[in-house]
Computed example of a mutant assay.
Amino acid sequence: MIKMGEQNELIRKLRKERHLSQAFLAEGITTREAVSKFETRGTEISAQTLFAFLNKMNIEPEEYVFLLQSKNIFKQKINQVGKLLMQSGTHEQQSYIKELNQYYFETNDPFYKLISCQYQLLFNSEKLKDSEKFKSCEKVIKDYLNQVENWGRFELTLYSNVLFIFDSDLILATHKNVISKMKIYNSNAYYKYSITTFFHNVEMLFCVRKDFSSFQKILPYYKNQTKEADYCYERINYLIFEKIAQKGSSFKISEISNELSILNYLGYKQIATDITSFVEQTFGA
C-alpha cells in the first residue's frame, strides 16, 4: 500500500483542473466514495489504483513524480500516433480521427476529444478553414485552454500545435502568462523543450503571416530561452530567426547558409532540410 501524504492533494487538484468528477475517476477502478475518502483524508490506496488514476487523467508516472516533488500541477500524455500520421494519406488520418472519437464516445474522457480536434485541424487546416467543423474544433480547444488554471506540458503542446487558430495580438497578450504558468518546468530539460518549441512555433507562425512587428517582440524571449539550450540546434534555430528579424520580408535563404552547414555537419540533417523547406515556402528561393 502507498501512504499518500501530499499525493491525495495533488490527485484532487489534477482532477479538478481537468474538470473531472470523482465518479469519472472512480469508474472501472474503485468507488466514488473511495476516491472521496482518498482525496479528503489521504487514505491508503494500492500502487495499481494510483497508476490507474494517473492513466485515467493521461498523466505519465515520471511526470507525476516531478509534479509531486515540485508541487506544481497538470500534464497529460501526448499521443504520438498523430505526429507519425502528419505525412500519411487521408485514409489513415481519417481512421485515426475516427478511432479517437470512438474512444471519446466510450470513455467520455475529454483528452480524446481534444486530440481529435487538434489533429482534425492539423490534417485538414486548409480544407476545413471557415467550415462548421473547423469552428467546432477551434471552440473545443479554446474553451479547454481557457478553463485550465495551471498549464502543464500537455496544454502548452496543444496550444503550440494549433497556434494558427489564434490571432497574433492574442498570442502576444498571453505568452507571458503562459510561460509564467510553465516556469517551474524550465528546471527540467524534458519540459523546458516544450517551452522552447512554443517560441519556435510562434516565430514560424509570425513569419508565415509576415507579421514582423510581433516577430520582433517575441524574439528576446526566444533568445533567453536558448541561452543554455541542451541541444545546440535550438540555439542555431534562434540565430536563424535573428537573421530573419534583421531582413524581414527581404530575407533570402542564402543568408543562413553557414547555419545550415553547421546543422548538417553536426548530424541535424532533417532539421536543416525542414528549415530550408520552410524558408523557401515562406520567402521564396
Rank of each mutant, 00 (worst) to 15 (best):
M4V: 06
E6P: 12
Q7H: 07
E9K: 12
E9C: 14
L10K: 07
I11R: 00
R12Y: 04
A23P: 09
A23V: 13
E33Y: 06
E33M: 07
A34F: 12
A34D: 10
V35R: 00
E39D: 00
I45C: 00
S46L: 02
T49N: 01
N58H: 15
E62D: 09
Y64A: 01
Q69T: 12
S70Q: 13
K71R: 14
K71I: 01
N72Q: 15
Q76G: 12
S88C: 09
Q102L: 14
Y103N: 15
Y104Q: 08
T107Q: 09
D109F: 00
K113S: 10
Q118T: 13
Q120T: 02
L121V: 01
F123S: 11
S125K: 13
E126N: 14
D130V: 06
K139F: 09
D143W: 11
R153W: 00
T157G: 13
Y159A: 07
F164Y: 14
D167I: 02
L170T: 14
N177I: 04
M182S: 03
K183L: 12
Y190K: 11
I195M: 11
T196L: 04
T197G: 02
F198V: 04
H200G: 04
C207Q: 14
F212N: 02
N224W: 12
Q225W: 05
K227G: 10
I240K: 02
F241C: 10
F241E: 10
S249Y: 02
S250V: 06
E255T: 15
L263A: 09
Y268A: 07
Y268C: 08
Y268R: 04
K269T: 12
F278P: 06
V279L: 00
F283A: 08
G284C: 00
